[in-house]
Amino acid sequence: MTQVLTSLVAVIGTLLGATLGYVFQRRNTARSDRQTAALAFSNAITEVIRSQQDWFHRKCEEREGPEHRAARLEGHRLRGVARQTMNGLAFHLPDRELLREADELLRMVSDLHKATDREDLVRRTEAGRHALSAFIQAAATKVR
């Protein structure tokens, strides 16, 4: 009888340990996926800001010149990449408010190249960076 009881306790302990390990691993994986999605979006926004600034500067140097056209194409490409990373956000962090904030942020930084002069570009860039910082803080509270 003692051997049966000992074996039963060992089997139950093994099953309980395996189940708890699975639950904790799944929770950590989900958190890691949320962090990765938020980080990918914030990195994409940073690249959009850089490309929009380049687009503005190339436009000032020679409107419709080859460098301006290349900068414009790169700006469009990176906006597409940022839009794609929003799909990851929607999948891993399906929070309506956070997704709305992400969409507004992308719209804001996508228009940097429309600045009227360098001072306007600086103002728009700072506003975009401030909004990105606010998004990162909001996302950090949702990732945990």
Rank of each mutant, 00 (worst) to 15 (best):
R129S: 05
K59F: 02
R31C: 11
A40D: 01
R77S: 15
T19L: 15
Q52C: 00
R79M: 12
R118P: 08
V48E: 00
F56Y: 14
R123C: 04
D33G: 04
S42T: 14
A71V: 02
R83P: 08
R124D: 06
E126D: 04
F41I: 06
E67S: 10
E119Q: 03
D54A: 10
L112Q: 01
E97N: 12
D103C: 06
E104K: 14
V122T: 09
R72Y: 09
L93A: 05
E47D: 04
Q53A: 09
A127N: 11
R118N: 14
F41W: 01
A70T: 10
E74I: 05
L89D: 01
L16A: 13
R77Q: 12
L39E: 03
R118I: 12
A71K: 01
G80L: 07
K59G: 01
F24I: 15
D111E: 14
R100F: 12
D120K: 03
S42C: 01
G17P: 00
L89V: 06
T29P: 02
E101V: 05
N43Q: 08
V109C: 06
L20Y: 12
H113T: 10
Q52A: 02
I12R: 04
R107G: 04
E47S: 02
R123M: 03
A70I: 09
R50P: 00
Y22T: 11
D117Q: 11
I49L: 03
L78Y: 05
Q25E: 13
R107E: 05
R118H: 14
L105I: 08
H130D: 15
I12S: 12
V122R: 02
Q84G: 13
E62S: 08
R69E: 12
L112R: 02
R124V: 10
L132F: 06
R63I: 03
A127M: 11
F24Q: 14
R34L: 06
L20P: 05
A134W: 10
D54L: 10
L105W: 02
C60A: 11
R63N: 04
E47C: 01
A131S: 09
R79W: 00
R83K: 15
G65C: 05
S133M: 14
R96M: 11
P66L: 10
R26G: 03
L121D: 01
L98K: 08
R123W: 03
H57G: 05
H92D: 10
E101F: 04
R50K: 10
A115H: 05
R31A: 11
E97S: 11
A102N: 03
A70H: 09
H113F: 10
E104V: 11
A82R: 14
D111Y: 13
R58F: 10
C60D: 06
H76W: 11
L98D: 04
A44G: 00
